[in-house]
Write a protein that binds this DNA or RNA. Structure first.
Lengths: 234, 234
DNA sequence: CGAAAGGCAATTGCATACACTTTTTGCCTT
DNA sequence: AAGGCAAAAAGTGTATGCAATTGCCTTTCG
């Protein structure tokens, strides 16, 4: 039974398991509340239960799955309240990052931020949603780094990753791109002039709007009945 | 070799392991940078390597240990900058919790908070440090819960646990107890009158002071030489 | 004499086997 | 007939054994 693992690329096995299971959760392939049977997952990926177990542990730490002692693991159920709470936290964290960025960014960082921001204006004109989304992520990451606080950076990135499943379609609303850019512009302007308070407020408003835009999609399929066995393709 | 486990109380074994190893790290028994050998730990606690492995994984998620693939686990080395960053984050998070608590706490929660706070005044008079520390933890936990935001609660508790090793001796400074109580009093007063901004500022100042008080002990023994085998008492 | 390559020991990572907890189902009692 | 208890089955938690990768030491060649 050893020496197969064709499904999984090279590298640490458990890491690939985390990505594989995590992707299936994020993409909605595994629905919230669904039971994650260790043996089934092990058979599905052709590994033993041990790496599955460790992967589930890590996913649990990430908040993607919930584990109860001796009761198995299930895909984390995100309630409407919890989702709102995460967006709220995100807004606060972004506000902190923007404030600190305004106060602490080096000239090089400020220049790079503005440069990228101005460059992204073209994407808005072209209506390139997917490209803009990439730049959007970059933009926010710059803010997180600009805060010059490793721990806040970690908290923010962690929260963002947990929100990832619910932010997928945020730019599908008409006119959202232009509005997003304008909101970014307010933040950038405040940062350039070193106004921490203004940058913070602008960032918080920005995320709040994103939150509302994403709220539409928050109506996740709740799936809670004793789900039938995990029928995966092939 | 099975069926002993006298060292560890009942309940889930790995959970006890997390606490045991975590305590040894927190109490400085295991020094930062020290290598954590799975086999040694397993022998030390008379369990197999499996729960040790899982415990190390959880501790890694907590940020207490660092793990590199195929290279083993070491006690996390916290730099001065990272520590400052964590305290800074803590101050910001506490500020958020206090602000939200002022805005959202129910009357029952407000009453309970004030009651506990007033009761703790006696501990200050008695100079009961360890009892006060317990109440202190309770007090802050109340603030975290009062924010009525599950995610912020999680972030805050997580950050607090990561700071635990460096907060041990914060009340050993003379007069710290009384000052702590007074700072709490400012927070409580602001919360009782629903002044979110004031509560937030007071909480931030409070944590900042604790940070400075703990900064003295931040000079952790860096220990990085290939440490001799883990000599634990009995 | 120094440096690089190959082998050896040690430790991590994965697989399998066993034990304990939980849940379900069937039977017995009321 | 319904409810409760018990036993079995399923599934998680733990132990142990084996394979693979890493770091170090020795040996050999320049």
């Amino acid at each position: 039974m050893s020496g197969k693992r064709s499904l999984i690329r090279s590298g640490t096995t458990v890491d690939q398991m985390v990505r594989a299971i995590g992707d299936r959760i994020v993409t909605g392939f595994l629905r919230p509340g669904e039971k994650l049977d260790e043996a089934s997952l092990a058979a599905r990926f052709d590994v033993s239960r041990t790496p599955v177990r460790e992967a589930l542990g890590r996913l649990s730490a990430m908040g993607l799955v919930e584990r109860r002692p001796n009761r198995g693991a299930t895909v984390a159920v995100v309630t409407q309240e919890h989702l709102a709470s995460m967006f709220e936290s995100m807004a606060e964290l972004e506000a902190i990052c923007a404030r600190f960025s305004a106060e602490r960014m080096t000239t090089a960082e400020r220049r790079a931020l503005e440069l990228e921001h101005q460059a992204s204006a073209r994407l808005v004109q072209l209506g390139a949603e997917e490209d803009y989304e990439y730049f959007n992520t970059e933009f926010h990451t710059r803010l997180y780094r600009g805060a010059h606080s490793k721990h806040i950076y970690e908290l923010t990135v962690m929260t963002r990753s947990r929100l990832a499943p619910f932010r997928r379609a945020q730019f599908m609303l008409p006119g959202r791109l232009a509005k997003s850019w304008q909101e970014h512009d307010v933040i950038v302007t405040a940062i350039m002039r070193g106004d921490g308070a203004a940058a913070g407020h602008a960032a918080k408003d920005h995320v709040s709007i994103v939150s509302e835009a994403s709220a539409v999609f928050a109506a996740v399929d709740p799936v809670k009945p004793a789900a039938d066995s995990i029928e995966v393709s092939s």
